[in-house]
Amino acid sequence: MDAECKLESNGTIFRFCITEKGYNDGGYFWTNAAIYVSNWCLNYRTSSEFLEFSELIELRDKLTDLINDNLNEIEHLEFIEPDIQVLLKPRHDIRNDGKYEYIKGGYEIEDIVAEFLLYPVLDDAFTDQHYVMPLYRQNIAELLKYLDNMIAKLK
């Protein structure tokens, strides 16, 4: 099993790497994990322990709900460490948005997306500036397979 999930989308590389669960720090297990995102204008990396193990499980469970169409509205995941946030957007009918006057037949339903909001450290501080890395159905499925395998291995 690979210790890394590597996805490519429109010239951007998204890598999620988990190597160990971490030690018990008063009930928290700071998982040795990192997300890397790079393209021609960005080279981003989270801190090496940005997720607690229960947050990793929550991320996996919410992505599972998203891919199985068990979410009815947008969900916003935030974590203890502010490196990332994730917006989970379920399938929806764009005819109900009121944004469009015309929608070509066959394009009425917008599929799921998980938007990873990446917050870089600038001058040793977090700001409201962020980069959005969208993952679509196929990439979400690949990431879920990786998370399922790694969580089972680390339990």
Rank of each mutant, 00 (worst) to 15 (best):
R15P: 01
L135Q: 12
A141N: 14
E73G: 00
K145H: 09
Y36M: 04
S48A: 14
Y44M: 03
I112N: 13
L88M: 13
K99C: 10
T19C: 12
I112M: 10
R95Y: 13
G11S: 08
D111F: 00
R60P: 08
L118I: 02
H130A: 00
S54K: 15
C5D: 07
Q85T: 11
L66F: 06
K153P: 01
S9H: 14
Y28A: 11
R15M: 10
D25V: 03
R45C: 09
T19E: 12
S47N: 13
T64N: 10
D65N: 04
I112R: 13
R91W: 03
K21G: 02
N43G: 02
L147I: 07
P134F: 05
D83V: 13
T12F: 06
E101H: 07
N68V: 04
E78Y: 12
K99S: 04
L42D: 00
L88Q: 13
F16W: 14
G98R: 03
A125Y: 02
Q138C: 01
C41S: 03
G22K: 08
L56E: 05
E75F: 04
R15C: 12
D83C: 14
E75V: 05
R15Y: 02
L117T: 00
I74T: 15
I35W: 14
L7A: 07
E115S: 01
L147N: 06
V121T: 11
R137M: 06
Y102R: 05
E78K: 08
F53N: 04
G11K: 02
I94V: 15
L117A: 06
N39C: 07
R60Y: 04
Y23V: 11
H130R: 08
C41K: 05
H130L: 01
P90S: 08
L56F: 06
E75W: 12
L63T: 04
Y44S: 01
I13C: 10
Y36E: 11
G106T: 13
N72G: 14
V132S: 01
D69P: 11
Y146S: 10
N10W: 05
M1D: 07
D25A: 05
N68R: 09
L117N: 06
D128M: 04
M1N: 02
A125P: 02
K62Y: 09
A33S: 14
Y107W: 15
